[in-house]
Structure formats: C-alpha cells, structure tokens
Design a protein around this nucleic acid. Structure first.
Lengths: 232, 232
DNA sequence: ATTGCCTTTATAAAACATTTACGCTTTCCC
DNA sequence: GGGAAAGCGTAAATGTTTTATAAAGGCAAT
C-alpha cells in the first residue's frame, strides 16, 4: 500500500468517467475505468483496485448487483453514485455492501473528500490475521485455535471458532447476518440465516456463564453484537 | 469558502428584494437578486451562490419549479418565502427539495437566523454514511447502531433508528411527511402518514426527557424538524 | 459401527411493524 | 360563528417476521 492507491471508476456515461479519471489522476491516484457492471467486476478481479466508484444504473449489471458481486471476493471500499433523492436505492446499495454514496450532481471536492475518508478508514482497519485476540474475558489464539473465556479453556468446533473469532475482531459493532454468513461460510454458500442462529446458540451454550446472554448480544432484525466483557 | 457567502434572492416584488439585499449585505453576505424564476435559475448556474432565497409565486417559473430545477444541478440550501394562502405550495416546494421556509410577513432577525442555520448545516457535509453523527445532545453511531442522548444510551428498533438517523443528518431542516416516509419506508411503500405519527411518538417516548418535545419538533401540516439541542 | 461435526427441520416464544381506535386541537367551509 | 373535516398524539390490538432451542438426518473420519 506504499504505492499509489488504485481507483476503479465504473460508469456508462463516458463524460462522467472522463472527468473523474482526470480529477482523480491529478490527485495522484492510479485510475481505471469500466463502462458497465460486468466489465467492472472483471476489472476488480484482475486489477485489484483499492477503491471502487460506481454508478447505480448501468447496462449489463447494475450498481447494486455489482456491489454484491464485488463483496463476494473483496472488502475494498465502494462509493456509489446515485441520482436525485432516491434514499431507498441508496439503502439497497448500502445493504448490498457499499460503504458510501454521493448524490449527483456532486462537487469534485466532495467526492475527493469521500475518497480520502474511505481510503483512510480501511487503512486503519487492516490487522494482522494471526495475532491472538485479547479482549475483556476472552483470549483467542488463531494459530493454536485455543480459546479461553475468563481463564477457562473452551473447546470449539471449527465453525464455532471462526464465528467467535470474527466477532471478537469487531467488538461492539453490530454484525449483520450477511456479514457474518459471508465471513464464516463464504460468499457462494446458500447463506441461510438459520445456520447462524444454530451456531450462535451453540456458542452461547459453551461461552455464556448465565442464562441471559452477556457476551453475544442480539440486535433483532439486524444481526449480532459481541461484547467482550467489562467496559464498553 | 473562506470568501464571503453568496446569497441569491429571487422575488418579483422589488420592494422585498431591495430590503433583503440591504439587510443581508449589511451582515457581510454577497447578494444578488433576480426578478423571476428563469432569471433565478440562470443566476444559480452562472453565479454559483451558496444559498438561495426564493418567493413562491413569480412570473415565468414559480418557486416550486425553480426548486426542482435547481436541485437538478446543485445541493445548495433553499429557503422559500411563502404567504399564508400558499400553504399547499410551501409543502410542494419542500418536497421538491427546498430546505426551509419563512412565512410572510417575517421579521428580519428570523430570516437571518434561518440563513445562518442553513449555511452552517451544509458546511459540515462530506462525511461517509458510517461516520458517527454528533450533534448537540446526540451521538449516533451507524456502525454499532448505538445511540446516546445526553450521555445516556437508548435502545431503538431498526425503524426508529432509521428515522432518527435520517433526521439527525438533516438537523434544523424541515422534513415533510413525504420525505420522511420515503427515507425510512422507501418509495413504493403504501406511505401511510399514520406510520410516521406512531414512530415519532415512540421515538419521543424514548428520547425526550420532558413532556413537551424539545428535540423532535412538529411543523403542523408540513412535517417534523429535528433540533439536536443548544443554539437555534 | 461409532464419533464428531455440519446441515436441516420443526416449534414455541419474543420482538417488531402495522393497523385500528379515540380524544383533542386546528383548519376549512358554509 | 359553527359544524364538518382533517391533522396530531397516544394507547392498544393485531399480524408478521425473527429468534431461541431442541432434535433429527447426513457425511466423513476413525
């Protein structure tokens, strides 16, 4: 990442693509453009951009579908360009995995600010995957796959372990069903929310000391939240 | 933006235009006037004002049409001047993208307060949607879905959360029923205004410390307005 | 055949959204 | 003015979706 950040722009209006390319290039970014969703997805796979800017309405594959497809393979920030006050579509896009949206017509400076903000955010998020997680009452060692809760060792099955580890890496945040399913079972799976309930339940039986959950909290209609213990 | 803010006044009554120009200029704003909607739109395109004040009934192009046309190209705050008899038009204008309204006859200080409030609001707009909203007594974190009011945490259901978040992102702005319903329930929904009443009520019960609303204000016949606390 | 784990299925309970109802106030219209 | 209509706040009933939980079926490794 010491290199220049790569930005992929997906839009069927060549006029907008060209303006964006010029503007972003002048800021020191490396820029590529694609004219529709399919080409965009291909470019994500081949070129590995650090950030994706995409229009919502496009031929071949629209913005929401593109978001979903990209999320199958990558966690890069996605900024969506939407027209007018279509709050609902924006929400769909955000649900599909987009990180941000900018409403057309937009100022160049606004877009640049969003780009910087999103690149900065992921830079702060990156973490070494094999470091032990220590938080509150929990100690999780990914290498030995050892788990201790309040000093006591607990035996977890692989899926249980993956689930707990992922949640422990994002303490306090609400993790939607989609995110959790994707993290543990991978993108292409049938992704049935039932899995999640079953495994959350099993995890709780092994982890929660009392009857009412204290570590794994449920946010109805949204997802689950992991609270490692003591303080917030 | 270190420059003086530019304000465009669109009104066919030259008497009002003149008064506004004098008043606003004395406050350090740079002011231009236009006598009808078409001239106003042209001035928006050419002069790029930071804020627009417009009358509703005008020759050539009325205020509602002007709002819609301006919104095609710009997100600047729009304050609408309306008279009692034009209640309906006022709501139309707000739906068409206006941010605020002042009813004639109005006091100069009232108008100045609205101008300041609306200029201040746009100054703080280039944030990704997942950044926490901090305003007045409120702290709203979309990522953890955590809400704090005056330091105390409050649990909100998803719809309540969506509603509050949307309002908090547009503090001080008049939000019509249509806009709110659209933002929370989406366009194609049945859009019954009853929903809004019920949820506003529930939000108030969870948020308002006293009996008389302080944060969520109702604008009768128009919609609601969110005031995060302290000032204006 | 046994064991351990993942996947399904089934069902009761909980959480939430929607709808209905009603008293009150404000506007509208004659 | 005065009655009708519409908007608002509020509480409560109803309906739907989501969740917790147990348990059965399947598959691979031992």
């Amino acid at each position: 990442m010491a290199d220049r950040s790569r930005i992929l722009v997906v839009d069927d209006e060549t006029q907008i693509s060209r303006v964006l390319k010029t503007t972003l290039s002048s800021q020191g970014y490396e820029v590529k453009t694609a004219a529709d969703g399919e080409a965009g997805l291909e470019a994500v796979t081949d070129w590995h951009p650090d950030l994706l800017i995409t229009d919502l309405s496009m031929p071949k594959m629209n913005g929401v579908e593109l978001c979903r497809a990209v999320r199958e393979q990558s966690q890069i920030p996605i900024i969506v360009l939407s027209v007018r006050e279509e709050e609902k579509n924006k929400v769909d896009a955000l649900d599909a995995g987009a990180d941000d949206y900018v409403t057309k017509p937009f100022g160049v400076n606004e877009l640049l600010a969003r780009v910087r903000a999103n690149l900065r955010r992921v830079a702060a998020t990156a973490e070494p995957p094999n470091t032990p997680v220590e938080a509150g009452d929990f100690y999780i060692n990914p290498e030995s796959r050892q788990v201790k809760v309040a000093g006591k060792e607990v035996h977890l099955t692989p899926k249980e372990f993956d689930l707990l580890t992922f949640m422990a890496r994002h303490p306090g945040k609400v993790l939607t069903h989609r995110v959790l399913l994707n993290a543990v079972w991978g993108g292409q799976s049938v992704q049935q929310p039932e899995y999640l309930r079953v495994f959350i339940n099993q995890l709780r039986k092994k982890i929660e000391p009392e009857d009412t959950p204290r570590y794994i909290l449920t946010d109805p209609w949204v997802g689950y939240r992991f609270q490692p213990g003591e303080s917030d």
